[in-house]
C-alpha cells in the first residue's frame, strides 16, 4: 500500500483560504459545499498570544472508519493507496460514512445526493501533480507526497520538525500532519 499524506506548516500558513477556493474550482464543487476549510486557533491572553492556522480536509486515514462503515463498498481506497474515494454509482446516500468520520470531512453532494469528499485530487496525483490546494498555496506551507518514502519532501519535513495530527485519540491514524 502506498501511503500518501499531507504535511502542512502551521507556522507559515496565513489562513488565506486559497486552498479552499482552489479545491472548489479544480473539482467544480457546487456553491456552499466545502471539501476543505481553514481553522485559526489563538491561545493565550492579550498580550501573550500565539496563533496557529490549519488548512483541514479528509485525513485519508490509515484506519478509515468511513470505509469500514460503508455498507455497499462505495467508500473505497483508490488503487493500492490510502486515498479514500466514494463511487457515486454505489452510494445509496445512507450517510453512515458521514457519521463515521470524526473530522466531519464528508458532505452530501447536491443535487444528486451521493456522498462526496476530498479526493487528494487523485486525478492530479495520477499525473504526478500535487493536489490543487497544495499547488495553489501562495505560502508553500502545504506539502504532499508518499509518507513511507524516506526521501520524499513530506518524510523529510516530518523527520525534522515537531508535528501533530488531528484527533489522534480516535485511532483513525490520520495522514494529514501539521508542523507546529
Amino acid at each position: 500500500m502506498i501511503r500518501y499524506g499531507m504535511v502542512i506548516d502551521t507556522q507559515l500558513c496565513i489562513g488565506c483560504g486559497d486552498c479552499v477556493v482552489a479545491c472548489k474550482t479544480e473539482n467544480k464543487l457546487p456553491a456552499g459545499l466545502n471539501r476543505d476549510w481553514v481553522v485559526e486557533a489563538t491561545r493565550g491572553r492579550y498580550p501573550d498570544l500565539t496563533t496557529e492556522f490549519r488548512s483541514e480536509r479528509c485525513n485519508h486515514c490509515s484506519h478509515a472508519t468511513c470505509v469500514h462503515t460503508c455498507p455497499t463498498g462505495a467508500s473505497h481506497l483508490w488503487k493500492d493507496t490510502n486515498i479514500v474515494l466514494v463511487d457515486p454509482g454505489k452510494c445509496t446516500g445512507c450517510k453512515a460514512c458521514i457519521a463515521a468520520c470524526p473530522y466531519d470531512a464528508r458532505l452530501i453532494m447536491t443535487p444528486d445526493g451521493y456522498i462526496d469528499k476530498c479526493t487528494f485530487c487523485h486525478h492530479r496525483v495520477e499525473k504526478g501533480e500535487d493536489p490543487a490546494c497544495v499547488s495553489s498555496c501562495p505560502t508553500h506551507c502545504m506539502h504532499f507526497g508518499i509518507l513511507d518514502e524516506p526521501s520524499s519532501a513530506v518524510s523529510r519535513l516530518l523527520a525534522s520538525r515537531q508535528q501533530k495530527v488531528l484527533l489522534d485519540e480516535t485511532g483513525n491514524q490520520p495522514n494529514v500532519y501539521y508542523l507546529i
Binding site: 459545499l33 485559526e40 450517510k95 457519521a99 464528508r106 452530501i108
Partner: peptide
C-alpha cells in the same frame, strides 16, 4: 484561553454546525 475559529465559512448542509444527517 483557546479561540478556535473557522476563518473560511464551512456550512455543509446537514453536517454543519453539527450532524443532522438523520432526522
Amino acid at each position: 484561553m483557546l479561540e478556535e475559529l473557522l476563518v473560511t465559512v464551512r456550512s455543509n448542509p446537514k453536517i454543519d454546525p453539527s450532524l443532522g444527517i438523520w432526522s
